[in-house]
Computed example of a mutant assay.
Amino acid sequence: MSHFQNLRIPMKSPKTPPSTSKHSPPATTARQPFAVFPELCSPSPVRLTVWCKSLLFNGHGYTVFDDADGRMVFRVDNYAHNWREEMVLMDSAGNALLTVRRCRKILRLMESWEIYKGDIQVANMAGLQVPIFRATKDMGNSSCSVSIVPRVGGEASGYWMSWSPDKDWWSKIYRRPAADDESIVAEVSRKLGASKKALLDKDVFTLTVQPGMDQAIAMAMIMITNSMR
């Protein structure tokens, strides 16, 4: 647990309402990003600390904390050796929010992923197998296109993710189609330590989510980009 101790997450009370409060609707803008969980949309930017480790012994996954108050927001726990092929994003209580599943490569030239709401295993038993997102990436390309599965009569939209092939952790998520130049909805970077001069371990980074963006969707996209690297 030495990595966990190095996070040094502040435990003071936040000055703003928690980002998951049902009484804090997203700020009104001309065009809001698509949200699966409106209660996970904040009216102000949210900074999350993502630790690429599971809290379970010998487990694989992620543990995500809110920088404002140090509380756990998300977790991913898996014991399988190929755990990146299918991951379930859960809240701090262990409730399944999203399932991220890798699809077969298309002619070895393209990678494809699908995101489902809840636990896909439970959804399969109930006969509900429709993904809410599909992500595709051409081999050798350092960007990924994420499309929302359109509903009947719905408008085609989605996101575009770009990351640096030269840096361990640097990624941006853009809303598509972009209404203006300020279309970045989330951004990832290596996390600085308490001194603000030294980076923490390579498995610790900061996820900044912009107002109105679903934090669960942003985290699921980061899980996909990490698996695509």
Rank of each mutant, 00 (worst) to 15 (best):
S54E: 11
V46A: 11
A30E: 04
V76I: 14
A35L: 02
A35F: 05
R71L: 14
K53M: 12
F65N: 03
H60D: 09
L55F: 14
D67E: 09
F74C: 02
P25I: 09
P26L: 06
A30G: 10
G61M: 00
V76G: 11
V36E: 01
P33W: 12
F57C: 13
P33C: 10
G70T: 14
C52K: 15
D67A: 13
A68R: 13
P38N: 11
T49P: 04
F37W: 01
A30P: 06
H23P: 00
C52S: 14
S54Q: 10
F74Y: 14
R71C: 14
P43V: 00
V36F: 09
T49W: 03
S24E: 04
K53E: 13
R71M: 14
R31I: 06
P43R: 12
Y62I: 13
F57D: 12
Y62E: 15
L40F: 09
D69M: 07
C52N: 13
V36I: 11
D67Y: 01
M72E: 15
H23I: 07
A30V: 07
S24H: 06
N58V: 14
E39T: 12
N58P: 07
A27G: 03
H23D: 13
L56F: 08
S54R: 09
F65V: 00
V64L: 13
Y62V: 12
P43W: 04
L56V: 11
D69A: 07
S42V: 01
L56M: 08
P45A: 05
F34W: 11
L55S: 15
P26K: 03
S24L: 06
L55D: 15
P45S: 03
S24C: 08
S24G: 10
R75D: 04
T28M: 12
A35Y: 02
S24K: 09
A27H: 06
V73K: 04
D66Q: 05
R71A: 14
V36N: 02
L55I: 15
V50G: 02
